[in-house]
Simulated assay, not measured.
Amino acid sequence: MKKVLASIGIGNASVDTVLPSETVRPGDTVDADVQITGGDAEQEVGTVRFEIETRYRTEEGYETADIDRFTLAEGLTIEPGQEETRSVSFDVPYGTPVTTGEVEVWIETELDIEMAVDPEDTDYLDVRPTPRLQAVFDAMDDLGFSLHGAACEADPYGRYASGRRFVQEFEFRATAGRFRDELDEVELVALPGADELDLFVEVDRRGGLLSEMAETDERKTRTSIESADRKTVRADLERVVERHA
């Protein structure tokens, strides 16, 4: 009877991932403990899965994406009341989006138990920008742009990067400074890496209705950010925006 009840989630085994901190940055290495506790009956765990996930926007709605996933253990037998802790070390992928606005990133740990409700644990992360991306944010602020919105958008045709289902887009509005009367907004798609930050830039100039309908008010370009120095990045971005304003 206990096994029957466990199969529908009553008296089932449980899992809990303990992180040293919920605050991370892409490129960080994080050490965590996965604590597994047996339920009221012996259960065979096929695999212990560990996934980093987010949601992105498509034309049909929102979809969940695995940023990274791996198997922590296989063929594990959990006795009633048994407590077991597995240590895990993982790298936060550079493609992990920054959790600003409505963007969420979480870790999901799941026990794959055949013929039973799979126990799982969800831990939300506070993902901060890489140093280069933070320098971009600071530089845009210096140039008179304020962050208006951030979202993860589908990239089904690999427009920005092959092999990725989505990208994160940041929308900045010109609210002060020299570009306030020239530009409506600047949109950035950032692809951080270990050695540089690829930045896709779309500059939307102020224009009339016809130019907006024809999208002739939009200029697109691409640049690479290698420095994390605020002044250096500001000078680089100012040249890029000025060239396409």
Rank of each mutant, 00 (worst) to 15 (best):
T96Y: 06
F70V: 05
L133M: 14
I67T: 02
R159V: 12
Y56K: 08
A161Y: 00
I10N: 08
Y56R: 07
R165G: 10
V240E: 08
I52N: 01
T221A: 10
D123F: 07
E153H: 11
N12R: 07
A135K: 02
E171W: 08
T99F: 07
E74M: 08
D66Y: 14
F137I: 01
Y160P: 06
R55T: 15
P129R: 03
A6R: 01
E79K: 13
A116C: 09
E22I: 13
P192N: 03
L210M: 15
T64P: 02
A194E: 14
L188E: 05
L188V: 13
G177W: 04
L111M: 11
Q43F: 00
S7H: 12
R132Y: 10
D195R: 15
L133W: 07
L133K: 05
P97L: 05
E84D: 00
S89Y: 11
R159D: 13
P20S: 08
E182C: 00
T221N: 07
A6W: 02
Q168I: 10
E212T: 03
V117E: 14
R173F: 11
E59L: 14
D40H: 04
D204M: 04
E83H: 12
S14K: 12
H244K: 00
W106M: 04
L111V: 09
P192G: 00
E59C: 01
E44H: 12
R219N: 08
Y62M: 12
R222P: 02
L125A: 02
T223E: 11
F166W: 03
E153R: 14
R243E: 14
Y94N: 08
F145M: 05
D181W: 02
D33R: 13
R159L: 12
G38P: 00
A174I: 01
S7Q: 10
T232D: 13
V117W: 13
I10E: 13
A174E: 01
T71L: 11
A13W: 00
E44C: 00
A190C: 02
A6V: 05
D217Q: 14
L5Q: 09
G27T: 07
D121M: 05
I113T: 07
F166C: 02
G61D: 04
E22K: 15
D40M: 12
A161E: 12
V15A: 03
D184S: 08
R86N: 02
D91F: 07
S211P: 04
T71I: 15
I78L: 15
P80A: 01
T23F: 02
A161L: 03
D236S: 05
R230C: 05
A194N: 11
E202D: 08
A65P: 06
G81K: 09
E215S: 08
T58H: 09
T223L: 11
R159M: 06
M115G: 10
G177K: 04
Y62G: 11
T54K: 05
T58G: 07
A73G: 01
N12Q: 07
T71H: 08
V48A: 04
D68P: 13
K231N: 12
E218H: 11
Y94G: 03
Y56Q: 09
G46Q: 13
L19C: 08
L197F: 10
T64E: 13
